[in-house]
């Protein structure tokens, strides 16, 4: 097959791009998870529920913004290279993470929270022992869909010099070589599937029993 030929003939280049792609994904996801979940905790804190509901509406709508638009904006405001690509990817991945984490945290039944308060749990204990563990399935679903979207969107980063497997797709386009385009596309898909599988395994390990 042409794709396999292309990979065996250009192994170092393909590996480099694959690695770049993974770094774009890993770095941007790390910051997206960190900020997304912190923000969700902040906007859903007791007394903040109005903000929380607002964030849920905004992030729900924001998921419809096309990735190219974000990348283009990053290019205009930050310029060319890996850094603007990562910034664009962070912005784009935060949305589903923030959406899921906020709606998850807001959907913990008030009875359960009231029982926790009545037993003498502090706000922090309520957060870490009750609210986060109980919303973990929803939070993890957000992270998984963000990861898949992130890996796909990272191909567009090549547009503004971010590197990664998108380079193969654009190169194939320029050279009129479907085998190169396919190589980029298939490797991107493989990475997305593998990461999703790993996250699913992680989820099975960390999900508290009783919620499975």
């Amino acid at each position: 097959m042409d794709v396999i030929h292309y990979i065996t003939d250009n192994t170092p280049q393909v590996l480099l791009l694959f690695g770049q792609h993974f770094v774009l994904f890993a770095v941007s996801m790390f910051f997206a998870i960190l900020t997304g979940i912190s923000l969700a905790i902040y906007v859903t804190a007791p007394g903040n529920e109005k903000k929380g509901n607002m964030v849920v509406s905004i992030t729900s709508a924001a998921q419809a913004v096309p990735p190219l638009a974000i990348v283009a904006l990053a290019f205009i405001f930050v310029g060319i290279g890996a850094a603007p690509s990562i910034i664009a990817l962070i912005l784009y991945s935060i949305v589903p993470i923030l959406f899921n984490a906020s709606s998850g945290l807001l959907s913990v039944p008030p009875k359960v929270i009231e029982a926790g308060r009545g037993l003498g749990l502090t706000q922090n204990q309520l957060l870490w022992k009750i609210r986060i563990p109980m919303s973990l399935p929803v939070i993890m679903a957000g992270i998984r869909s963000a990861a898949t979207i992130n890996i796909g969107t990272a191909t567009v980063a090549s547009f503004i010099g971010g590197g990664g497997l998108g380079d193969l797709i654009f190169m194939g386009l320029k050279l009129y070589r479907p085998d190169i385009i396919l190589t980029g596309a298939i490797l991107t898909a493989i990475m997305a599937i593998a990461i999703d599988y790993l996250l699913q395994m992680l989820e099975n390990i960390i999900l508290p029993g009783g919620l499975k």
Binding site: P109, K111, V112, A115, G116, T122, P133, P208, G209, L211
Partner: peptide, 28 residues
């Protein structure tokens, strides 16, 4: 917090923590 810990509280539908076992719920 000490006041609440010295007062037992039981509500309708119990408000048990669904992600804790019976043991862990009682041990809170």
């Amino acid at each position: 917090v000490e006041l609440r810990r010295s007062i037992g509280y039981v509500i309708q539908e119990t408000g048990l923590f669904p992600h804790y076992t019976v043991y862990d719920n009682i041990a809170v």
